[in-house]
């Protein structure tokens, strides 16, 4: 019997939870705020879905309801992607070692 592709995705999902568990425990507590802002930025990879939604359908009518939701989601996710990565960068620039 063939395995449902869903099972593969579920396996990836569960394995990544474990990867995430070990990776996040190794994050130094002093970088927990950048951790939150960067996870915020990467979870906006949901923009992938938004792009598919926005570009769906024929070229004649690019502003059907489902497209509009896609476009709105693109704006929201883009705010997050740029905002998230840039603010993380800004914070990480400030972490400096003692000058000797």
């Amino acid at each position: 019997m063939e395995i449902d592709p869903f099972i593969f995705r579920l396996s990836i999902f569960i394995l990544t939870i474990f990867v995430g568990y070990y990776v996040v425990w190794s994050v130094t507590p002093s970088l927990h705020t950048p951790l939150m802002s960067v996870t915020n930025a990467i979870s906006s990879v949901i923009i992938v879905g938004a792009i598919i939604a926005a570009l769906a359908g024929s070229s004649d009518n690019i502003f059907e309801t489902s497209n509009i939701f896609g476009f709105l989601a693109i704006i929201l996710a883009a705010v997050n992607i740029f905002g998230g990565f840039l603010v993380t960068q800004r914070m990480l620039q400030m972490y400096k070692k003692k000058k000797k």
């Binding site: 990836i12 999902f13 990544t16 990867v19 996040v24 939150m36 996870t39 990879v45 879905g49």
Partner: peptide, 30 residues
């Protein structure tokens, strides 16, 4: 993160599933 993972399953998108799981577990640990 879990919301992103849910959408990742819907769209059958690995990047979204991986990210969702990472962010979900990160937030849970914090």
């Amino acid at each position: 993160g879990w919301a992103a993972a849910g959408i990742g399953f819907t769209l059958e998108n690995t990047a979204l599933i991986i990210t969702g799981a990472l962010v979900g577990s990160s937030g849970a640990i914090l």
